[in-house]
Design a binder for these strands. Structure first.
Lengths: 211, 211
DNA sequence: TTGCCAGCCTAACGATCGTTCGGTAGTCTC
DNA sequence: GAGACTACCGAACGATCGTTAGGCTGGCAA
């Protein structure tokens, strides 16, 4: 899956450009956007600051593309899982687990790009944020629809249960990026684990019975 | 509950100082730490930049105190709930709901101070971060212990279920700060809602049965 | 009345920021 | 081999950053 050549009509893969994107995404993720200077990025890719402007219009444009790549990765993963599921007859739980697995795989495969979305997004310049919002909202809507299909009873405007469930799920999935090491454990196992927790609930294993 | 006079041995409440803390916390939360200049803070409190240095040693020191106030607020809330629960005989679910309510109340009462912890923390300067880590870890441990007591079966090192549950719960609680309006709905209802979702699980209301 | 100090000020410091201008090597085309 | 283009560079621009030095002012203590 070619994640790095977003909105490039031709397959014009520039090693320098890609390197900048990858390194900058990593730095933005770990240090923050404002905290990462173009000189830091340039040093990390063994270039001079001015050279970055040959590939990107501005620092903001660089960030915008990084965020877009990240959303593309998870959106593509979601669609791929959805079309796979179309063929068979999967249970609700299996559907959910498949999508969680897809999200997690995209998360770890494009680590810095997708994770940057989680941590950096609240603080990016207003222009960059508004540019990224539609893509984010669309992905969010895909999950909302999925959860609504799986558990229609959640869709109660008064209690916001659907929203809460989605947020809990995203919280669990996205925070995994900060502690789970895919080289040590299987991502599928992690997905099964997350869905299991969400599916069965705490009540089923509480020490004092099921209330 | 006097949240604002942390580590001040005497009750020396300075209006100017408190104002700076409150406004800075709000700005750090919404715009980010590096993105918020001392001149912006000064303007917001109707002072000159230099005046801030009469109250705080540096920008980092200001942030350090803000983070500390935030952790104090939730820790104090947790302890208060715990000592209240000591008297009666609460069920597991009631205990959990009481603590979630306590966390949420502290979250909304000291909005900017506690919420700053959630969004800003990953990017704060290294010195500030290491200073804040012990307080954070201690609060995290309180919740881990609580969840372990409520559902000992979660404590399985292989599957990380305990960790996942805590992260899901924190994800749901802390993200509430970004969309829940305490003037429109009751925080207790929100707590009951969050715990209800976590307790019963998705399986109990899935459209296709309980798997 | 004098002295002190908290609280805030003006003015400026050096450092660092994103960005731009005018190049120079190498490669490819005709 | 002339011209064009890609990829990069050195050097500098103005703006903004956190921070500091030194001064003013009003109220409280002696």
């Amino acid at each position: 899956m070619a994640i790095l050549d977003t909105n490039t009509s031709e397959a014009s893969i520039s090693p320098g450009r890609d390197r900048i994107l990858r390194v900058a995404a990593e730095l933005f993720l770990t240090k923050g956007y404002a905290e990462t200077s173009l000189r830091t990025i340039a040093e990390a890719v063994e270039m001079r600051p001015a050279s970055i402007y040959h590939h990107f219009e501005s620092k903001d444009a660089l960030l915008t593309e990084i965020l877009s790549i990240g959303m593309d990765a998870v959106t593509t993963a979601f669609d791929a899982v959805a079309s796979e599921l179309d063929h068979g007859e999967a249970s609700e739980r299996e559907r959910l687990e498949a999508h969680v697995g897809g999200h997690l795989r995209a998360l770890f495969a494009n680590h810095a790009f997708t994770a940057a979305h989680v941590t950096v997004f609240p603080f990016v310049p207003a222009d960059v944020r508004t540019a990224a919002v539609p893509q984010r909202d669309a992905y969010e809507a895909q999950w909302t629809d999925l959860l609504r299909e799986i558990a229609p009873a959640l869709d109660n405007a008064r209690t916001d249960a659907l929203r809460l469930t989605r947020l809990s799920l995203f919280g669990a999935m996205n925070s995994a990026v900060q502690w789970f090491d895919p080289s040590e454990g299987s991502v599928d196992e992690l997905a099964a684990n997350i869905v299991g927790t969400l599916w069965n609930g705490l009540g089923s294993i509480a020490s004092g019975g099921t209330d």
